[in-house]
Structures are given as structure tokens and as C-alpha cells.
Amino acid sequence: MKVIFLQDVKGKGKKGEIKNVPDGYARNFLFKKGLAVEATPANLKELE
């Protein structure tokens, strides 16, 4: 799953980066803790 990092995550990505991460990791950790959002067209547009 492609995500946009909202904060630096040690060993995974830095704020503003767009990266592919495993689905479970994204849903169960990154999204729940507010560290990233899914890289949807709407979210990508907001990032610009």
C-alpha cells in the first residue's frame, strides 16, 4: 500500500515521503498512530 508519511518514522520514511509499505503495517500501526495516510489522489493533491 502506498502511504504518505506525516511524521518521520525511524527506518521506514521521513515526513512528506511517499512509499510502499505492507498493508497490515499501514493499517495497524501507521494509520492508527497518525504517522501516515493512504496515498489517494485527494491526499496527494493536498501534499502539493
Rank of each mutant, 00 (worst) to 15 (best):
P41A: 14
T40H: 05
R27I: 15
Y25D: 05
V37R: 08
D8N: 12
E17S: 06
G13P: 01
V21I: 08
N43V: 12
G16V: 00
R27D: 06
T40P: 05
Y25T: 04
A26G: 04
A39Q: 03
I4P: 00
G11Y: 08
Y25F: 10
K2A: 11
N43G: 06
K45R: 14
L47Q: 09
I4K: 05
D23W: 12
V9A: 02
V9P: 00
N28E: 14
F29I: 15
F29P: 05
G34F: 08
V37H: 04
K10A: 13
D8H: 08
A42G: 13
N20K: 10
V21A: 03
M1R: 07
V21R: 00
F5G: 00
V3E: 00
F5Q: 00
V37Q: 08
V37W: 05
V3D: 00
F31G: 02
F29H: 14
A36F: 01
P22V: 07
K12H: 14
N43I: 12
G24M: 12
Y25S: 03
F5I: 01
E38Q: 09
E46A: 15
I18R: 03
I18F: 03
F31D: 04
L35A: 04
D23V: 15
K12E: 12
G13R: 01
D23L: 14
L35E: 01
G34Q: 09
G16D: 04
K33W: 15
N43S: 08
A42D: 13
V9K: 01
L44E: 06
V37F: 04
G13V: 05
D23K: 13
V37T: 06
E17H: 05
K33I: 10
K19D: 03
K10N: 10
E48Q: 14
K2F: 15
R27G: 03
V9T: 03
L35D: 01
P22G: 08
F29E: 14
R27L: 13
E46N: 13
K45Q: 13
P41I: 13
K19S: 07
G34H: 11
G16S: 04
F5H: 00
K15S: 06
A36G: 03
K19I: 10
K33M: 15
E46D: 13
K10G: 07
V21S: 02
Y25A: 05
E48N: 11
K10V: 11
G11A: 05
L47W: 14
V9N: 01
V3A: 01
A26W: 09
G24P: 10
Y25H: 04
I18E: 03
F29R: 05
L6R: 06
V21N: 01
G24L: 12
K14Y: 10
A26F: 12
R27W: 11
P22D: 13
K12S: 13
Y25N: 04
N28Y: 12
L6H: 02
K45S: 10
Y25P: 04
L6Y: 03
E38D: 04
K14L: 11
E46P: 07
G11K: 06
V37E: 06
L47A: 09
K19P: 00
F5D: 00
L44K: 06
I4W: 03
F29V: 14
G13I: 04
K14H: 10
K14M: 11
V9M: 04
V37I: 14
K10E: 14
A36L: 02
D23H: 13
G11V: 01
L35S: 02
K14V: 10
L30M: 02
K10R: 13
K14E: 06
I18P: 01
N20W: 15
N28P: 00
I18D: 01
V21P: 00
F29L: 08
A42R: 11
G11L: 03
K12F: 15
G13Q: 02
A26K: 03
E17L: 03
K33L: 15
L35V: 04
K19R: 12
V9W: 04
N28V: 05
I4V: 09
I4S: 01
K2T: 14
P41L: 12
G24N: 13
G34P: 00
A39L: 07
L44D: 04
F29W: 11
L47T: 08
K33R: 13
T40K: 05
K15R: 13
L35H: 03
K12Y: 15
V9G: 01
R27H: 10
K19G: 08
L47G: 06
G16F: 09
L47R: 08
E46G: 12
K45V: 11
M1D: 02
K19E: 02
N28M: 10
I18V: 13
K2I: 14
A36T: 01
T40G: 05
K45M: 13
V21L: 06
A36N: 00
G11R: 06
E48T: 14
K10I: 12
G24E: 14
E38T: 06
D23S: 14
G34M: 08
E48D: 13
E46H: 11
K15A: 10
K2S: 11
T40M: 05
R27F: 12
G34W: 05
Y25I: 07
R27N: 09
A42M: 09
E48R: 14
N28W: 11
E48Y: 11
E48G: 12
K19F: 05
E38F: 04
L47M: 11
V9Y: 04
K45E: 12
Q7R: 13
K10Y: 10
K32H: 09
Q7V: 15
K45T: 09
V37P: 01
A42I: 10
R27M: 11
V21M: 11
A42P: 07
F31A: 02
D8F: 07
G34E: 06
A39N: 02
L44I: 13
N43M: 13
Q7P: 00
G16W: 10
T40A: 05
P22L: 08
G24I: 12
P22I: 06
K14P: 01
A26E: 08
V3I: 08
L44F: 08
D8R: 04
T40R: 05
G34I: 03
R27E: 10
V37S: 04
K33F: 15
K12M: 15
E48F: 12
M1Q: 06
K14G: 05
K33D: 11
K32P: 15
A39T: 03
L30W: 02
L35T: 02
N20V: 15
N20D: 13
D23I: 15
I4G: 01
E46T: 13
L47H: 10
A36H: 00
G34D: 05
F31T: 05
D8M: 04
I18W: 02
F29Q: 10
D23R: 12
D23G: 11
P41H: 10
P41Q: 12
A36K: 00
K14A: 08
K12L: 15
N20R: 14
L6V: 10
E17D: 12
L47E: 06
D8K: 04
L6Q: 03
K19V: 11
K45H: 11
E38Y: 05
V9H: 02
G34V: 03
V9Q: 01
V21G: 00
E46F: 14
G13N: 02
G16Q: 02
K2D: 11
I18Q: 04
V9F: 03
E17N: 04
F5R: 00
D8W: 07
A39H: 07
I18Y: 03
G16L: 05
Q7D: 08
K33G: 09
N43L: 12
N43Q: 09
P41F: 10
L44G: 06
N20G: 07
G34Y: 09
M1N: 04
A39M: 07
V37Y: 04
P22M: 08
G11T: 05
V3P: 00
G24Y: 14
A36Q: 00
V37M: 10
T40D: 05
I4A: 04
I18S: 03
E46Y: 15
N28S: 08
Y25M: 08
A42S: 11
Y25W: 11
G34N: 09
N43A: 12
N20S: 12
V21T: 02
K14Q: 09
N43P: 04
Q7G: 05
A26L: 09
L6D: 00
L44H: 05
L30E: 02
G13S: 04
L30Y: 03
R27T: 09
E46Q: 14
V37D: 02
G34S: 08
F31M: 07
G11N: 09
L30V: 00
L30D: 01
K45I: 11
N43T: 11
L6T: 07
L44Y: 07
P22Y: 07
K12D: 06
G11I: 02
V21K: 00
K15N: 03
F29G: 05
D8Q: 04
K14F: 12
N20P: 07
N20I: 15
K32V: 14
K10F: 13
A36P: 00
G13K: 01
I4L: 10
K10P: 15
G34L: 08
P41G: 08
F5V: 00
G24H: 15
K2E: 10
Q7Y: 12
K10T: 11
L6G: 01
F31Y: 05
V3L: 03
A39D: 02
A39W: 13
M1P: 04
K15H: 05
G13M: 03
R27Y: 11
F5N: 01
E38S: 06
A39Y: 13
E46L: 15
K14S: 09
E46S: 12
P22W: 07
K2H: 10
L44P: 04
D8V: 04
L35P: 00
L47V: 10
V21Y: 06
K32S: 10
A42E: 14
A42W: 05
N20M: 15
I18A: 04
K33N: 15
P22S: 11
E48L: 14
V37L: 09
N20Y: 15
G16N: 07
R27V: 12
K12W: 15
N28A: 07
L47K: 08
L47S: 07
I18L: 07
L6I: 10
V3G: 00
P41N: 10
V21Q: 04
